[in-house]
Design a protein around this nucleic acid. Structure first.
Lengths: 156, 156
DNA sequence: GTCGCTGCAAAGTCTTTGCAGAGAG
DNA sequence: CTCTCTGCAAAGACTTTGCAGCGAC
């Protein structure tokens, strides 16, 4: 058995993501730029849900020489969201946060004290959602669920 | 049997809401103003989820002589939300919509074509949410679920 | 009368857009 | 070379804030 399996899988996964992205760009007569690659990579390497600004800061820190503009971050996130490569979560009036959408579908548990976002999936709920939509004649394209409260750590 | 039951219940309900609001204000040394009453009443009489601007327009139309400012709408909505009299829904980057929170808890089905919001409740899902939180040691304070898609009408 | 409330306008956030030069294909 | 992208700065959309006069209690 190979202990580096996780790493290998991770690499393969990213390569596929990148290839898909490149194809998407090509098919739409768009260009593959270093900024777009860096944005995708940073999203991929982050376990967190990133706000455009957080993403901007991460990229500025890691690739200062690129001097990526915040406008490019917004434009690229919009592109990635339209292409369903990333999905966004809305938080009140104050902005959105993005995550790679290529991951398995999941819902979110948000700590209102420390901001921690925990992901979870529940098949029961998923099934139920489809059932309800069918019953009401609604054609679901996506759904999101957020549970707000206090996480285990903050309860202490 | 009395055919005006619905109306009567509605009136009673509003009176209670108003009384609660007045008490809340009194307990916090805040004042009961005509603007605050009009905002509560308009929210109560609307079946829709209102954006601050939509609320502003409704009030301007119905009570032009009051000349209620948009800032007052925002301030009052914030107050009502903090007091848990209304709840808000976030939609992408573009703002929030408010509804009376005194209603029974429910989730939302949002048509991405026409913007129609349909409410629903499902006991199964509610139960499941509590179960999951318990399992993960998360202390839930509230939750929201949105299903996006195309409503029955728009499918035609 | 006091002290919170309101409308107004100005200031803040966050996000988008116009433009001229840079760069991918 | 062409035509898209990018950074910059300005503009936009939505929301909040400071202030002086108004109004609830």
């Amino acid at each position: 058995m190979d202990t580096s399996t996780d790493f290998r899988e991770r690499t393969v996964e990213y390569t596929k993501l990148l290839t898909d992205f490149k194809n998407l760009l090509k098919n739409n007569n768009l260009k593959f730029t270093i900024q777009r690659e860096v944005i995708l990579e940073t999203l991929y390497n982050s376990d967190e849900h990133l706000s455009p600004e957080a993403l901007y800061n991460l990229i500025q820190k890691k690739y200062p020489q690129l001097n990526t503009g915040i406008a490019t971050i917004y434009r690229t996130l919009t592109l990635l969201e339209e292409s369903e490569i990333v999905t966004s979560l809305s938080f009140g009036a104050q902005g959105k946060k993005y995550e790679l959408g290529a991951k398995e579908h999941h819902d979110h548990m948000i700590c209102t004290n420390c901001g921690l976002i925990t992901e979870f999936v529940d098949e029961e709920i998923e099934k139920r959602q489809h059932f309800i939509c069918e019953k009401l004649g609604f054609k679901m394209t996506e759904h999101s669920m957020q549970i707000y409260g206090i996480c285990k750590n903050c309860q202490q």
